[in-house]
Design a protein around this nucleic acid. Sequence first.
DNA 1: CTCATTTACTTAACATCGTTAATCGTACTC
DNA 2: GAGTACGATTAACGATGTTAAGTAAATGAG
Lengths: 203, 203
Amino acid sequence: MGVKERRARQKKYLRQEILDAASELFVREGYENVSMRRIADKIEYSPTTIYIYFKDKADLLEQVCKETFARLVQRLTKIMEQPGEPVERLKRGLIAYIEFGLENPHHYRATFMMPIPDGLDHEKYHQADSPGMQAFSFLTRGLTDCIKAGKMHATNVELAAQTLWAGIHGIISLLITQNTFPWVGREKVIHSTVHTLVAGLVR
Amino acid sequence: MGVKERRARQKKYLRQEILDAASELFVREGYENVSMRRIADKIEYSPTTIYIYFKDKADLLEQVCKETFARLVQRLTKIMEQPGEPVERLKRGLIAYIEFGLENPHHYRATFMMPIPDGLDHEKYHQADSPGMQAFSFLTRGLTDCIKAGKMHATNVELAAQTLWAGIHGIISLLITQNTFPWVGREKVIHSTVHTLVAGLVR
DNA sequence: CTCATTTACTTAACATCGTTAATCGTACTC
DNA sequence: GAGTACGATTAACGATGTTAAGTAAATGAG
């Protein structure tokens, strides 16, 4: 009886269709401008159907972001596998992270610039296998590589990684929300941020 | 005929009352959890009355944030007036900015972590007299002080200020939204960020 | 084949939101 | 005292996220 399997396959298919529709709307408009009804319209189902596949709107968009951040992890993996000078490699990773954030401003905003829903999720969030945390772990890995190569003093690696994260998150989120600010130049300020952070850590 | 003046005074008084009520709710709940109706309830007026004094919800909360950021400007002014070593003074300013952001997470989020409403505000925002920009100008001032004192190379000051802003904004916004993340310690990571940025710029 | 159960989905509705139009009442002007 | 300007209100619109109840078809057992 492959009937169970077929049904499961169909469910999975619709689930993905919802994710895709939500993602597309989400990319064009922001989180708050995407309504459940519009997503439902797009896939030509009733709005309540979505609630069979996802707990609520927050859950749905969390899954959407998860998909997107998985692509970031792929990109970072590729960079980290490349040989060469570790500090340069770390810098390339930072730049890639920043570019990713600017390419996917709505996803980035949803995952890192939204208040974490108060509740008991204190542990559910920030699990090691979540794409966000995987991306973060690249920082610590890149840093330890630098230390091993003697390019950096072996201070608190975790602290350094968090400092680095703060820095690149800062430039991403500012460029996203304050895009009418008279920046001295996007590329320039991105490069300056990365350079300043790394220089400050190597010392 | 002081009648016109009295009316104006009354208007101003109610306007301030609305601002205060909105601010108090705003501090406790987030932007999205404060409704016009609840603000109206608090001051015991009808919801539509608010629209006589403020264009819409965004306008009202913008004014609330303006008030709050004016306090930050005061604080920064006090710090910048103090004598002493300019790099240390700059650092104290950065710390004060970060502390302010963490003390007023909702106001900070509303002004710097929200998508700028698309429209023609491209110039209205980022006016030099807005408290946000005034606060930013402290960075350039602090940096030029350092350069004058020979503590820093005279590279592009504007670029350095924007880099600094990105960095401190990063740690503020991350600590606000990702407060369940296993930080190595709030104070530690704040200090590390400031130190790294300044060290990276002085080089 | 028949009947009961499960399953996927929809319709209807609730509470709440920001906001506008129409209206009311009163304090002012003349 | 009549007319007016203005502050505030009531009622309503359209839209939101979400839940409860209902429907119709596919599935399983006898």
